[in-house]
Amino acid sequence: MAMKGARSLLGKALVLIEHNNAKVSPASLSAITAASKFGDITALVAGKGCAPVAEQASKIAGVKAVVQVDSAEYDHLLPENVSKLVEKLHGAEKFSHIVAAHTAFGKSVIPRVAAVSDCQPIPDVINVVDENTFVRPTYAGNALATVKSEIDPVKMLTIRPTSFDKAGDGGSAAVTNGEACGETGGTKWVSDEVDDSGKPDLSSARVVVGGGRGLKSGENFKLLFDLADKIPNCAVGATRAVVDAGFVPNELQVGQTGKVVAPDLYIAMGLSGAIQHLAGMKDSKVIACVNTDPDAPIFSVSDYGLEGDLFDALPKLKSLV
């Protein structure tokens, strides 16, 4: 087992698994890949009725142990309750790293745990240099900061899911039952409104068609959805402007304040390419754009740009793909 450069394997990482009681979220699979650079991984699966997820987590490559805490207070993974559980586990096991994906869940829990442990969290990590040194984007992705955590005994990070591959199968970890540590009270879950249209998930789609103000109306977004239906594993994204205008729901928003995507292909339709939007998609492998304005900033990040009217281009594009 001894190998060169394996010093970091002395570490012990805890990964907080996000799930829907049926499967581990793709973002958590990326968190496992990031955490595998720190040493042995314990996966925490908390929830109510989360046994299938714990079972799945035990088979993920790199996971050495699964702690399953199946109890009513972890229903909907409220950060107040989950963070108490993580604090307790950390108190007993003294992890070197506590890792979650930089999603609404990870962002809500990790800073809470960090504050109680008097630790400065490291958010939205895109690269792990070594066990103490991390790269993260700031200023909407316009400056990359490499930071070294020198003082805190435990590093608490959220990682950007699109920057790390998803961990595959191949593990055979033991699942142990952890003890719940009670309701914190104060917060109650009321309801979820989830778009379950069955469309591919925006964050993990292979192709994303992004629409902006050039679409002019919510009805016209149907043209993008029709195109997306013709391309395998293709999702529709949108700029903040069209979300604010009520054309599409907010979970389609790509950008600094929405989702960060890095698909193989991003097709930008009628969007100018504001700094805020670019922050969410400029790491796409190939970017293509159609825009009537030759000076639109989107042309400066596009591999292929077509100057023209998207209402001419869309039907042709649909028939050609």
Partner: peptide, 9 residues
């Protein structure tokens, strides 16, 4: 606002 829609608390 969550990653998949809205949540009420």
């Amino acid at each position: 606002e969550t990653d998949v829609g809205m949540q009420k608390l």
